[in-house]
Amino acid sequence: MSPSLAVDLAGLRLANPLVLASGIWGCAAETLVRAARAGAGAVTSKSCSVAPRTGHPNPTVLPWAGGLINAVGLANPGAAEERLILQEAHKSLIPLGVSLIASIFGSTPDDYAEAAELVAGAQPEILEVNISCPNVASEFGLPFALEPDAAAAVTRAVRAAYAGRVFIKLSPNAVNIVEVAAAAAEAGADGFTAVNTLGPGMLIDITARRPILSNRVGGVSGAALRPIALRCIHDVTRAIGLPVIGTGGVDSGEAAIQMIMAGASAVGVGSALLGEGDAVFSRLQREMLTIMQHEGIASLEEIRGCAHAG
């Protein structure tokens, strides 16, 4: 029998574990649907806030030797407009059997709750609560994901405002990510996406003699993040029995399998779309199947969290 890539994510069945990560492609219904057609098991929209935002000036996204650095600055059309985008996407995603994850963010717990209410009309399968963006600190202060009480306060507010599945997006920068996750779980989270970008980091152009990003600093993603993401997912899933979308530097079937072994139920893919576009989803599926055949793995459930042992 050929191995199966199907997974269960908080009671949702995904045909395969690959999830388009927030902020990659997901500004429009058409691009979300395109990623779904190309083989994503679920797709995440760009994070939206109650009020529209233009984001930071360019340069905002740069490729470097270890992956990407970005300070897009959470540009988005506002949650009311985003709901229309999500509704349009959902119409096409349902017949494809691909789940929609709607990402929101805010500046206070109440602000998050309001954004949650605004996008609720689109009935996403999961609401992802981004409390971990590292590149808007000059405006919003430190992310809620760095501190258990702050993470719990946002989770509680969203939980009260929204009846569906709530996933909290964790930061690799937390001093103790398990404590943050435990506080959010206690406050009513149904699962986690781990992790957001690392940092912030900085790139300097030696001829310009200054940081390249207009925001000076930005979140680090891609290969450089992978070992850190694996550790975060391992620690969170070992301590807390909630599902995790393991995200950070996944660019191969091997990396996706590592995420599952670390304890992830699904696997986010973002920076790996660089250069390859949505073809990354079918390649990763093929590579995962080859590994499963080779290693005699029939289902991903069989290996989920196997790295916790020992």
């Binding site: 492609w25 058409e30 905002t60 973002g270 660089l274």
Partner: peptide, 17 residues
């Protein structure tokens, strides 16, 4: 455009980047 390299999605025209 922001990234210019097919990541951020800001340059989309329908489903095309």
């Amino acid at each position: 455009m922001r990234c210019g390299i097919g990541v951020c999605g800001s340059c989309h025209c329908g489903s095309h980047l």
